[in-house]
Nucleic acid binder design. Structure first.
Lengths: 355, 355
DNA sequence: TTGTACGCGTTATCAA
DNA sequence: TTGATAACGCGTACAA
């Protein structure tokens, strides 16, 4: 038995035909009015009656039915981890900016975490979309890029520091970024450089940043010097650095796994009486806006967030418009933005505490 | 003419019936297998054949069709401005946390900006959902809460500092928060208190925070003292404060429109040689995490982000489960978190500059 | 345990 | 300019 309008007292949503009945016309004509297409001629009077009837009933076209017949939703999904991170929030902002003027609608889903919880994409897949852009999502790579992966015919573009060669992607070359950072540090005369990373980040202690750091050091005959912190919070970073100062000497420079860590390191050192940029240079990674407004602005490896989003959208559109189009690929190079935290000869400063 | 599978060379997605044919069974049985319901009995052998056929074809159930027949998507939309803001990113994080363990899927849309651009919700409405939670979205209030508003039968809950009495909402009582902040400042002996706000924020210069600030001052016979800045960036705030120092005296306390402004104000003052918490007290608003890790941790009006999200979800669920259920309403009080920026007798500190 | 048949609310085609 | 009518792909009542 089906729930029918008005039968059980629960009012369900009005449909095209309800409007048609009230307007004294047919369902197809109602559809035409709401199709919002200029090229379909409708008598002014008919249209007015339909608009009025729809208003009275509170009619809204059912997007699900529409999508079913058209085979398109006009929506692209952006899969990104929604756990708080300034970097990701800024990437999301870039995606919003890029997709704003487009015809496509944007919908954001929190994919990775959901997968680890459910061991499936069932929830994420519930919103039907024309294509998917996934940012730094290892999980979706596993799902899409493997042979016999899920939803093989859904247009998919991976974006960020990890990707699979099997499909379209817009990568970020963290190796190149790290190389530039290390070169800069050596060129500005730093010899002892440490890599600062929370110890729990298995992946990042062995990823491209760590690798390039190590080989850059070894190339120059400098000792590899990794400082592991307990967490990524200020307190953990401060205690790791304080401990280091107690046991031996601080390095001349810190290469930090990301900007969050770099910012905390800068503050921690300042509060320990160390002059950032003078006694110790700091380099971060990602290029979040906050690096610019620190007491001592931080040198950082700036990711090309907006360019990355724009390309990913372009690639996805190509796939959507022609599912048999070849995959497109590109790896973007970050730009080293040099600021006072690594600039020689900056004026000395001191810790900032409460008044 | 309809695009048919295999006819034009463009392979379209396989359907239930394709799988059924390959598995030598019927479409409904395929549906049953993919319904993932435990209570439907299926012969082990049949199921195996279907799974295998689906794998071969790369079959994924069409969510659009599924939603059309079931009348449910299992998705809730979260409408929030995606322009970068640490506060909103933290609210989003809270929503993710709350919805994580739930059965519902979360989809995030960038509503307000889209509306100002398109003057319609057409894009936002393309993803069909069971209900909508809107955060600090004046636009969606106009659309939903007005008589004869759009989509009157879609479950809708507004959340945040603005709401409409017409529908379910979870509000935040900024008046109460501001009152607590002002009380605290007066109780700790501050007499001259200025309100710091970017001048372009029309709304916020006349919203609840501004109003309560003014009446609190007037009640105590203290002069209202609004400091307008050109923008919300550090430079604008610094120049407004420097200008003030030049012309007259700094107030004993700054009540800032939000934490972003408060953080910038703290840094600006420090760099001008003012001791935050000693020479000038600072209070922010929103309770973003960053207030805690400033050189001088900031007192702030902490929004109950997670409680707010949890309630909004609860209210929405109620509406979804029973569309005729009464609207539910609640206004949450923020909590004043007192930190060193307003604590008397904190140790003096100085500006932190580059080394 | 499985198959048949209908309906979900649209869009698009075709005839009027 | 408008009205029937056939898909769209799936869920499910009912019959087998």
């Amino acid at each position: 038995m089906r729930r029918r309008r008005g039968q059980s007292g629960k009012p369900s949503k009005p449909t095209r035909n309800d409007v048609a009945k009230l307007a004294g016309t047919s369902g197809s004509t109602v559809s035409r009015v709401f199709s919002a297409r200029e090229d379909i001629p409708i008598a002014t009077e008919t249209r007015a009656k339909i608009i009025e009837a729809a208003r009275q009933l509170g009619y809204v076209p059912n997007q699900t039915a529409r999508a079913l017949t058209k085979g398109r939703t006009g929506v692209v999904a952006f899969w990104i981890c929604l756990e708080y991170s300034r970097y990701r929030a800024q990437v999301l902002d870039a995606m919003r900016t890029v997709l704003g003027p487009s015809k496509m609608a944007l919908t954001v889903a929190n994919v990775d975490e959901e997968y680890w919880r459910d061991h499936s994409f069932s929830r994420t897949f519930r919103t039907s979309v024309d294509g998917i852009i996934a940012f730094d999502s290892s999980v979706s790579l596993i799902a899409f890029a493997n042979p016999g992966g899920i939803a093989p015919r859904t247009p998919f573009v991976s974006m960020g520091a990890i990707w699979s060669e099997a499909l379209s992607y817009v990568g970020i070359d963290l190796r190149a970024g790290t190389e530039a950072a290390m070169r800069h540090l050596f060129e500005t005369g730093r010899r002892s450089i440490a890599f600062l990373v929370p110890g729990s980040w298995q992946l990042d202690a062995s990823g491209p940043r760590a690798e390039v750091y190590r080989s850059a050091m070894m190339e120059r005959g400098a000792p590899v010097d990794t400082i592991l912190t307990d967490g990524s919070d200020l307190a953990s970073i401060k205690s790791a650095l304080a401990e280091r100062m107690r046991r031996s000497r601080l390095p001349e420079a810190l290469f930090c796994i990301n900007d969050d860590v770099a910012i905390s390191a800068g503050r921690a050192l300042a509060s320990l009486g160390v002059r950032v940029g003078h006694d110790v240079a700091i380099v971060g990674c990602d290029g979040i806006r906050e690096t610019e407004e620190e007491a001592c602005p931080l040198t950082t490896i700036q990711q090309p967030m907006e360019a990355m989003c724009a390309l990913a959208v372009e690639y996805l559109k190509a796939q959507i418009d022609d599912p048999s189009a070849p995959f497109r690929r590109c790896v973007l190079k970050p730009e080293l933005v040099v600021r006072d935290s690594t600039r020689l000869g900056a004026r000395p400063g001191t810790a900032s505490r409460c008044g």
